[in-house]
Design a protein around this nucleic acid. Structure first.
Length: 261
DNA sequence: ATGGCAATGTTTCATTGA
């Protein structure tokens, strides 16, 4: 069973590319997308259902929005978390599939200025997510959390650690928040599998960083102990990102091969 | 210290992204 996380930066702008990717390159079983940037009524349902996917969406107009498309039926879908911070914007969706719980997350972008409300919101969002996952792990042992976490953890997760000093997504306080998730029982599957590998998931449009591989690793597949053991392979798929037309997202999908129950 | 590109809708500019 293949699980993918992909910040598509608008599903309407990326529909053709994503569908072509699924049809011709990587027919993943579960596709978790972030920044779909449209209300559910504007989501291209047909294109995905035609390929055999069930669709679960938590989204809003213009910004944010997450969605899970799965060939394996949902046993449960959750879009409301009864948490002021987690529910403030449409950034989280949870489903139950097979024998595990899957969360798809679009963490806030934040700001390098620690006085900026966006910096505070990112910190608060991570704290709320941590609290939520901590309690979830008490009742459910098998959890996968995927998404655009908007934080690179180590120097090898950015193309130039010096350049990223004090930059959004590479602040020590941000790394601490993501590391906190790894302390409550989740694992960074890519890093556990490949302790020394550098593999980016995002490249700046503005500098055309993709062509020099100047990027960051900010998209993750996190798994609890049981699921980490079932993770057979994990990699960044550059197929969508290295074409010029149609315009690709600034992110590339991360794809994990996980053994089913 | 800043821009650069891309998408959205409040649309021919402001906002967001990382």
């Amino acid at each position: 069973m293949k699980i993918a996380t992909f910040n598509v930066n608008s599903i309407r702008a990326r529909e053709e590319l994503v569908i072509t990717w699924l049809r011709e390159k990587n027919p993943v079983d579960i596709l978790c997308m972030q920044e779909i940037k449209c209300e559910s009524k504007d989501f291209p349902n047909e294109s995905f259902s035609r390929l055999g996917y069930e669709i679960a969406i938590n989204s809003q107009k213009r910004y944010n929005g997450v969605c899970i498309c799965s060939k394996i039926p949902f046993k449960r879908v959750k879009t409301i978390f009864d948490d002021l911070i987690l529910d403030e914007q449409r950034r989280v969706i949870e489903v139950e599939i097979d024998d595990f719980v899957l969360l798809n997350v679009y963490a806030p972008h934040g700001d390098s200025d620690t006085d900026h409300p966006k910096y505070r919101f990112k910190m608060d969002f991570y704290d709320a997510l941590n609290d939520y996952l901590f309690s979830l792990l008490k009742s459910h042992k098998k959890i996968i959390v995927v998404g655009d976490m908007n934080v690179a953890l180590e120097d090898k997760d950015v193309y130039d650690a010096k350049e990223f000093e004090n930059k959004t997504g590479f602040l020590e306080s941000e790394k601490e928040k993501l590391r906190a998730l790894l302390k409550i029982g989740l694992h960074d599957c890519f890093r556990e599998k490949y302790p020394n590998k550098t593999s980016f998931t995002w490249w700046d449009y503005r500098t055309a960083g993709i062509w020099r591989d100047e990027g960051m690793r900010i998209d993750y597949i996190l798994a609890s102990d049981d699921l980490l053991k079932r993770c057979k392979e994990i990699e960044v798929d550059l197929w969508t990102r290295r074409r010029r037309s149609p315009t690709p997202s600034d992110h590339a999908p991360v794809v994990a091969e996980v053994f089913s129950s």
